[in-house]
Design a binder for these strands. Structure first.
Lengths: 233, 233
DNA sequence: AAATTAAACTTGTTATAACAAGTTGAGCGA
DNA sequence: TCGCTCAACTTGTTATAACAAGTTTAATTT
């Protein structure tokens, strides 16, 4: 089985990373050094680096070099109050900041109409900062009564933290978790490369009357976050 | 804000795809046609295509062309019997096939030792085929007593289907869901490109005595599968 | 000594070129 | 008609080349 040059090189570099030859945060050889070491053209050396980037093993910084990526994920726990809270992340040593991009009443989009039985809803788009670094883009639709009542608080805190604080109890959440790849807009917001893996948490929250009150989608950096759940019979 | 050529081209093609100009399964212009249409070199045209590939919008087939990817994901439901079963997928029109690569007793690996209180465990590696197409790589560690007793059945059916059929009830599952990118080996097994997004379901199952009996990791194609759960207070 | 400048790095973009290899269909021959 | 071959497509790999644009360091100037 013969492999293309770029793959044999990237596999070799991969071995060095996984075996500990290059450690987390270390700089890899520069393109020129790789060209010399493996006697290949720059295009091939760059392709090898690109292969590693795509596997999430390294990150590239223009003008500086190629560095071994550090893994270690922050966990969103779904079981606690059914959604993650600031306090939950604080325990993992993470301070959450919220940067609200949009908060406005809008006509309910067609995808959401079947879920939230309303013609007008509040739409909030926000970026979550974790220790100051953007890690999640969140789009939430919320019933107009709630959105209007708690706007100032919703702008600065997590949706469910705010609702719980005002005695609005969530009884059930329908959730799906999937993954996707960053498009240009999202890649700019999360400061990642195009195609960066993202983990998507799409949820609908219901109150005690089984009435949907919140529907949203949280898109987080896949290299930094994961979801945990405890499922009991 | 000026963008590199390859990005302006890929964004333009992206618009055509999302707006329905090119529909699911359609062939995009060939590299030569893109070179002519946008008056760029082949390397730039290829980079534009690569941008779309990384966003999961198109798939490339050598010798044939570039085609708009079809989305539509199969859902693993976590709430039913806490793990997905063949019957569950059958309802979605998917026939599951199992191709066992490894089934053997091994010394318990260090990562698993803290979970399964055993020195020897059965290790099963399998590829799950969905309507004949590989979609998931699964690595499962199972208590030796269970592995030995049900080997022939475990080789051909889902782990939990087999256990349930023999009256072994799962009381609790600790699960985490994360995403990652295909390395070379996985990309070959799942027939995807290097770096393809993957969704990882890592779980530990406990019986009525709160004793861990199964620990495993399912790595599925992120473009084809998602997980759903219903979380109730 | 401090500030500025320039040189020497780094990665990013883009062009031209050639050959390899998978796919398809037209045309030829049996 | 059937089957084969070959030409004309397609994408994949690799080299050479040039310039752009961040980053760092050393030299120069103030």
């Amino acid at each position: 089985m013969i492999l293309p040059l770029h793959l044999t090189i990237s596999e070799q570099l991969r071995d060095r990373i996984l075996s500990g030859g290059y450690r987390s945060g270390d700089r890899l050889p520069s393109e020129h050094q790789l060209m010399a070491e493996f006697a290949v053209s720059r295009i091939t050396a760059r392709r090898a680096i690109s292969n590693l980037t795509q596997q999430g093993l390294v990150t590239v910084k223009r003008g500086k070099g190629v560095f071994v990526a550090t893994q270690q994920k922050v966990t969103y726990s779904l079981s606690n109050p059914m959604v993650f809270l600031e306090a939950d992340l604080d325990r993992q040593g993470v301070k959450v900041g919220i940067q609200t991009l949009v908060f406005e009443a809008v006509a309910v989009p067609s995808e959401v109409a079947a879920i939230l039985k309303c013609s007008i809803v509040y739409l909030q788009k926000k970026i979550l900062l974790f220790n100051g670094i953007p890690g999640c883009v969140d789009v939430t639709y919320i019933l107009p009564k709630l959105g209007a009542a708690y706007e100032s608080e919703l702008r600065q805190h997590m949706t469910f933290t705010t609702l719980e604080r005002h005695g609005i109890e969530i009884d059930k959440i329908d959730a799906t978790i999937s993954c996707t790849q960053a498009d240009y807009e999202t890649s700019a917001q999360l400061e990642v490369t195009l195609g960066h893996p993202l983990i998507v948490y799409r949820h609908t929250a219901y109150n005690q009357d089984n009435c949907a009150i919140v529907h949203g989608e949280s898109i987080s950096r896949g290299d930094r976050f994961c979801y945990s759940a405890q499922i009991v019979r």
